[in-house]
Design a protein around this nucleic acid. Sequence first.
DNA 1: ACCTGAACACCGTTCAAGT
DNA 2: ACCTGAACACCGTTCAAGT
Lengths: 253, 253
Amino acid sequence: MATRTRRSQRRTQALSRERIVEAAVELLDTAGESGLTFRALTERLATGPGAIYWHVANKEELLGAATDAVVAAAVAIGPSAATATTSPAAPATPPAEEAGAAGSAQDGVRLVALGLFDAIVRHPWLATQLATQLSRNPWGTVTPRIFESIGRRVSALDVPESSWFTVTSALVHYILGAAGQNAVNKAGARTLAPGVDRAEFLDTVSTAWEELDPDEYPFTRAVAEQIRGHDDREQFLAGVDLVLAGVTATHHR
Amino acid sequence: MATRTRRSQRRTQALSRERIVEAAVELLDTAGESGLTFRALTERLATGPGAIYWHVANKEELLGAATDAVVAAAVAIGPSAATATTSPAAPATPPAEEAGAAGSAQDGVRLVALGLFDAIVRHPWLATQLATQLSRNPWGTVTPRIFESIGRRVSALDVPESSWFTVTSALVHYILGAAGQNAVNKAGARTLAPGVDRAEFLDTVSTAWEELDPDEYPFTRAVAEQIRGHDDREQFLAGVDLVLAGVTATHHR
DNA sequence: ACCTGAACACCGTTCAAGT
DNA sequence: ACCTGAACACCGTTCAAGT
């Protein structure tokens, strides 16, 4: 078999934290979560483990940095603007969408939400990593980044300032929960042909759900059919709109 | 130091998948995600690794079973009914809440949501594990369990059947996202005195957020103060109500 | 059928030594 | 200041052997 990528030529660029994080993201995308090892990293960067440890404290920090880089790009850009290379450094301010009427702040929320959704689709490991990062390291950079980009749009909605935190939290939580679950791609595939593997997969789940015990799972069985033809992004956006509708109904009415 | 729990007496019960899962949950609760190793399990159960592998295919399956056991108990019971011992096997049908008027289906949703929330607080490893389980194994038992218990209440709301899937998904996604992020307990503490460690922690986050760059993070800084005194459960429920309000506003109105 | 425990391949991390 | 690479402790998993 011997699938050797003969990338172990002499190193041309100097090692740097940025280059290490970049390589980590590539490895995660290519080989999945279990593919990111210091040995693989070491080979790809043509160096030794000690060198990596000089730039990065440990694996947890490396995963955090990889997550942060991808998230930064996602919230800055909006939905899949096809950035081929992931650049760890992102512009400070997101490009302004349509100059802001109060109503199109809702579109802003949708835009950021889709940006995160697409990022998770492109980088399936993000789903798990986001959960890890947000729950055991909320003082890090990842949470504020997401919070800020959603929150700005929320503050442009007409919602009393005292509710900003609650509303933003609800949106962020929905987005992360939904994006996470929908990012079910077979590991390794860079871009999945949208019609083929995916439809097959949904079919499998739908069938499995239809075969559940009728006494224990009446609802899930009843609804299994609806999963078959559905479009993930559409579904995801419908959920965002549901929350936005709740915001409108609850505040300023 | 030699902190030996001298639990390695001769085994009294026979080994079984159930007992292994139970021990795994205890280990996860006590020592965190990194504390669950086959060696620790082996010592606690007074056996060898081979014996465990006879009952369980691998670590991934073990984690899945542990997650499933805890989730099953959570959705069956509702908010923290203080089950001291986690019983992997759960009753088939959840105990009926107040006999169902259409309006109290909303209370049903709140009840299940709080049940999951509390479960994650009691078992912080659930947050990460749920994300893993749901995203790379949706044909497992965990997803249908959660889906069913929320979905039943949704179908008792007056929402057209064609929207059941969308609405249930949105609720489940919010619940998992929110519960996940809020489950920030210091690892190891079984029950945390609610007023002490937690307030200190929120204080730290709030302060950190106030010190962010004013140009990049105006919103997060503005809202940092609101995090200080807030009650997680209250916040969580407010989000559930926001989604429910959205459902009411969008459907059958 | 169920369990034992030594052994294997692999992993994250350290550190004395080099430039 | 930055990098090398051997070495260490530990982990999930296997398997021939026992009962």
